[in-house]
Amino acid sequence: MIQLINFLGEHIEMIYILILSIFVGVEVIGKVPSVLHTPLMSGANAIHGVVIVGSIIVMLNTDASNILLLSLGFLAVVMGTLNVVGGFVVTDRMLEMFKKKPEAKK
């Protein structure tokens, strides 16, 4: 219990960020037209690819001679990048189709 309180106390700024981010996330998404649900899901999917930052940190902190850890870290970087790049590109492709239309016709 004391450990938990200590932990929370040490990370109090993170807890604030956590709680405020939850509300921001809810608010920001609140009024999305259902038309945009799919691109939004895809865009959000790309954003959680930020987990790649963690995989880079793992790599930077790893002993350069430990082949096993290096290869697992490499795998994590590749998968994180797939999430980020694939996510953003596919979202862009979807939205590109939305945008083109009004201009082409009018």
Binding site: M14, I17, S21, F23, V24, I29, M41, H48, V53, G54
Partner: peptide
């Protein structure tokens, strides 16, 4: 959770934003 582990704010905000927005969606 990765953000908590590394005290990394961008991971925390990015992750939680998607977490809460995804739930709403």
């Amino acid at each position: 959770f990765g953000g908590f582990l590394y005290d990394n704010q961008v991971m925390l905000t990015g992750g939680i934003l998607v977490g809460s927005a995804g739930t709403i969606l």
